[in-house]
Nucleic acid binder design. Structure first.
Length: 443
DNA sequence: CGTTTTTGACCGGCGC
DNA sequence: GCGCCGGTCAAAAACG
């Protein structure tokens, strides 16, 4: 297009020059006027093109907004349904951690198994909690209703979910993984059985946020960082933190679910791992957590801090149970607590949809023959700093992918829908946080 | 100067 | 009751 315009312009210039030699001043004036008209015409044509482009972009934007609204409406519909199903007068809700059960990762057939009404109600309640934690931006009309629901459920579900711990094992060279959230160190201890000190962090995104995390190097392999999350965020999260938060919260919920559904003798085995799990749903966090229900441990006795371990490392810990690498040592060392271990290792350089680790370090997921849970591919050389367009692409991919997951596994609907909502709603927030210039989550 | 990290003190739960 | 241990507090130091 550019080239054709140039050539035509060039010929007219030559033509003009040839005329100039013998043309009268009047003729010259007329030709200049004609040229101006041509320019005006071409400019008009350009503007028309730009307008069309603009209109097309507007259409696309409207479509995106429409999709967003649809997803949000679905989410709130689910909220309402779960709310109606709840039995708010159930006196056992508040303290009985063991009975907390979630549908997260549970197929409908699982639900029909043995769940009694109260239990399933609570499980949906908890599921709701998981889904609600990361969607507080409130930019849409439903947010007020959502917050109302949230406040009512907070006290019930927070009690339980707060107790669940999610331990993440990942290769990391720095003192802590960059999970996108903002943490402040408040203590450090040498714990028994591990020469490496354990650091205690609390979330500083919101002063009232109850979330804590413990960071400790694996004694057997100091390149492995064990990060244990406890509690749920009560504030909107930066987009870069939503993935980890969703993952840990979902894992915690699954753990609690498993606490009530665990069956004696259910032992993990490689056969329980579907190597094609990534086909179930492209989101590693959720689909594989769902998948990993198979790894619930039989222990369901009274335990103050049930723990679930997400293994993001390539190599199993050398001291891990002989049968399968996914079992964490915490299961052995803390037998009084139910512990579940999942491996999110990947055979490719996939990554959770957030930046785990600093710019100078690895992403915590390396080659592995374990469950392929990957979805969010990241260039291996990419650093922690993420450009805004990349984030947008990430959101886009996430949204599309999660939609597929929702269709394929109804049990994941609320959590996934929330993840989508949070990503969309928190997009601007994330950018603002990033613009603060702080290296989020790091000392 | 405000924020974060460090680090010893303190506290509560648990086992003996 | 005592000691151990994990977790938290808070004053001081360090940092930006």
């Amino acid at each position: 297009m550019e080239g054709t315009r140039k050539s035509s312009t060039g010929s007219s210039v030559n033509e003009e020059n040839s005329y100039n030699e013998s043309a009268s001043p009047e003729e010259k004036y007329c030709r200049k006027e004609a040229m101006k008209e041509d320019e005006v015409e071409s400019t008009k044509a350009k503007m028309t093109g730009v307008r069309e482009e603009n209109a097309r972009l507007k259409m696309q934007l409207q479509q995106i907004e429409k999709d967003h609204r649809t997803l949000q409406l679905r989410f709130f519909d689910i909220l309402r349904e779960t709310k109606q199903d709840n039995n708010p007068t159930d006196p056992t809700i508040e303290e009985d951690t063991e009975l907390v059960s979630l549908r997260l990762g549970m197929s409908s057939r699982d639900q029909s198994k043995k769940e009694e009404r109260n239990t399933s109600s609570r499980e949906e309640n908890e599921e709701l909690k998981v889904g609600s934690d990361y969607n507080l931006t409130g930019s849409e009309t439903g947010s007020m209703e959502f917050k109302t629901l949230r406040s009512e459920e907070d006290e019930l579900s927070q009690t339980n979910l707060k107790r669940a711990r999610v331990s993440v094992r990942a290769k990391c060279e720095t003192t802590t993984m960059n999970d996108g959230c903002q943490w402040r160190k408040y203590g450090q201890k040498i714990s028994k059985g591990n020469p490496c000190p354990r650091a205690y962090y609390r979330c500083t995104v919101s002063p009232s946020c109850p979330v804590r995390k413990q960071v400790q190097r694996c004694s057997e392999d100091t390149s492995i960082l064990i990060t244990t999350y406890e509690g749920t965020h009560n504030h909107p999260l930066p987009i870069s933190a939503t993935a980890m938060a969703s993952t840990t919260s979902a894992a915690a919920s699954m753990l609690l679910s498993g606490s009530s559904n665990s069956q004696p003798g259910l032992v993990s085995s490689p056969a329980n791992i579907d190597p094609t799990s990534s086909l179930r749903g492209p989101n590693p966090n959720l689909s594989d957590i769902s998948l990993a229900r198979a790894f619930y441990l039989p222990n369901s006795s009274s335990t103050p801090f049930p723990t679930i371990t997400l293994d993001l490392t390539t190599n199993p810990p050398t001291t891990a149970s002989s049968g399968f690498s996914m079992f964490s040592s915490s299961f052995k060392s803390i037998p009084r607590a139910p512990s579940t271990s999942l491996s999110f290792s990947s055979s490719e350089s996939y990554m959770l949809p957030t930046v785990w680790g600093n710019g100078s370090l690895n992403y915590g997921i390396y080659n592995s023959n374990h469950v392929s849970s990957a979805y969010f591919r990241r260039p291996s050389q990419e650093q922690s700093s993420q450009s805004y367009p990349e984030k947008l692409n990430q959101q886009e991919a996430l949204t599309q992918t999660l939609t597929t997951v929702i269709k394929s596994d109804p049990s994941l609907q609320s959590v996934i829908t929330t993840a989508i909502s949070s990503l969309v709603a928190n997009g601007s927030t994330a950018q603002v946080n990033k613009d603060k210039g702080k290296n989020i989550g790091q000392k």
